[in-house]
Nucleic acid binder design. Sequence first.
DNA 1: CTTTCATGTAAAAGCCCTTTACATGAGTCC
DNA 2: GGACTCATGTAAAGGGCTTTTACATGAAAG
Lengths: 217, 217
Amino acid sequence: MSPSDRWRRPHSYHHGNLKEVLLEAARKLIEQYGPAGFSLTEAARLAGVSPAAPYRHFRDRDALLAEVARSGFERFAARLDKAWNNGIPTPLSAFEHLGRAYLAFAREEPASYTVMFETGLAEAPREPMPAAERAFDVLQQAATALCRQLPESERPPIKLMSLHIWAISHGVATLFAQGELQAQKIPMNPEEILESAMLIYLKGLGILTDTKQAPSS
Amino acid sequence: MSPSDRWRRPHSYHHGNLKEVLLEAARKLIEQYGPAGFSLTEAARLAGVSPAAPYRHFRDRDALLAEVARSGFERFAARLDKAWNNGIPTPLSAFEHLGRAYLAFAREEPASYTVMFETGLAEAPREPMPAAERAFDVLQQAATALCRQLPESERPPIKLMSLHIWAISHGVATLFAQGELQAQKIPMNPEEILESAMLIYLKGLGILTDTKQAPSS
DNA sequence: CTTTCATGTAAAAGCCCTTTACATGAGTCC
DNA sequence: GGACTCATGTAAAGGGCTTTTACATGAAAG
């Protein structure tokens, strides 16, 4: 019962913070061994509890992975929203921040990102996953703001444009920003690839003109 | 020893075609349960052999998955190459075929596509995977051909452009063309999303002009 | 026919997932 | 303070999967 015992971990029968610790352990293990190599038992071991303990907090292994995905989308949406910052100071500069934030999340939380988008992990999440929709909303806001300078007749369907932006970002993130194994043969970093693609895409929409930088204001 | 025994399967001690049958079973199971849910034992059961039999053909579970990926890349590269067809009749029409072939493969062989691109499944394949490079080469050929009409000073770096094309295709394929779960809220099919994105991108490069269709020859 | 060897099986060790019955102890009510 | 309650932990066990090892089978070659 020395104070140091309370300091590190109460070493009591009840853990007190097991759910969060398990999620953290899961992310670490997935990052290391992939979603397939992750095991509930080993996560429990990392948390210092028995293999049955996680079942007090998650229905089963899939439920834990689903929670990794859900909480990942929360942080993802928050981060994208903060990077976009309502298009301030300019939609274009904010859009660049947004792209970098997207890639930064995929690189810093590869386990979360993988579980969030991996197909066939938890088959079908019944619920529409609100945080995922909030993240997509940020992209949609950005698309809207970027289009505002266009005459209405030339504006693309916002939803379609948002899907384009999402697909490009996701493609770059999964192909080049995760695991950095691919980084060998490829002469550029993911940020450069994403930004150059986006500049070309925006030019194709008429949002950007020939100069690399937009005519600010 | 009725003739029907020989008809369905030789029902002999030696299977005769086990390796291919196991790969086929693996693809079916992965398609159904995801790469995590796939089990060697169940693949063996589908093939009608004991759980130890697969080890005569694959070092371990990961080696089987690696072979699913490798053979997938073979068919992928062949299909892309055939669709591109050396840019005949026109680079633009061939490019459209290429995009459709990309999505068709992802939809028709979701298991292969997933294993081919899933991060953290087999950690790091030591070998550079020649078929994967052949597939990328097709994209690079297409990029080169599309750029030929541009004055040299306006041509983008071919490698970078190829990475853009790859990222967009991969993004659309993984987000919208696999599992078709997402198809609920999204008003368009993957082909439309990919083609519209590509048209905008090519316009941004100056390869396409305002008209939706290129001025054919 | 006999030998050879690729390809199959059976059995077993070890790990993981999950359930069930039981243990612990923090907070609550008298 | 003392007893109760219930969330949260453990232990044990069943069943499945992976992989290894020793053995079996039979097609092809000499």
